[in-house]
């Protein structure tokens, strides 16, 4: 780019950064000649894996850990926006649920999870970030351990504690 970095060109960078993945998906969607919808509709958490699409060099962040937690945070926001929109559009829409990462039984209401997670954040942002990374960026314990530079057993212990806290919180509300 030959233009100076500030707005309005900055605005364009920002625009592209913000919409890039959306557009990239759409653009790739024309693989078959058909256009995809412009809306992001992650109907399932598995699609949070798409977050990995954002490559490190395309986003101004320092370090991989920071990048991962940022991605998970953005994914969580997008997802909750979508869920709320869906529920607002259709008053009787069933609650959107997900499963505990790595397990195949049980269902957690996404909105309840989000609310509980918001509470967890207030006193323990570190555990909350871990939960975000597992749920919304689809990262495994191993990946998180590598990214955070701590041992897997530490991540596992923290995860188990966070999970117990969330289950307790959700069952209370």
């Amino acid at each position: 780019m030959t233009r100076p970095i500030h707005s309005p060109v900055r605005g364009q960078d920002q625009l592209v950064a913000e919409h890039y993945d959306e557009f990239r998906r759409v653009a790739r969607g024309v693989l078959n000649g058909d256009a995809a919808a412009l809306q992001i509709q992650p109907t399932d958490l598995a699609h949070a894996a798409a977050i990995k699409l954002i490559k490190l060099d395309r986003i101004e962040v320092q370090g991989r850990t920071h990048f991962l937690s940022l991605s998970a945070r953005i994914m969580r926001q997008i997802l909750m926006d979508e869920v709320r929109r869906m529920r607002a559009e259709k008053r009787q829409a069933p609650p959107v649920t997900t499963q505990w990462p790595g397990e195949h039984k049980g269902a957690i209401d996404l909105e309840a999870l989000d609310a509980a997670l918001t509470k967890l954040e207030r006193f323990d942002p570190e555990r909350a970030r871990l939960v975000e990374q597992r749920f919304y960026a689809g990262l495994t314990v191993e990946e998180i351990a590598a990214a955070e530079g701590v041992s897997e057993s530490t991540v596992k212990r923290q995860w188990r504690a966070a999970r117990a806290w969330l289950i307790d919180e959700i069952s209370r509300s």
């Binding site: 969607g29 058909d34 919808a37 509709q41 399932d44």
Partner: peptide, 10 residues
């Protein structure tokens, strides 16, 4: 969602 996302239920 695949290639011709129409109803968006991946």
């Amino acid at each position: 969602g695949g290639q011709a996302s129409e109803l968006g239920r991946d």
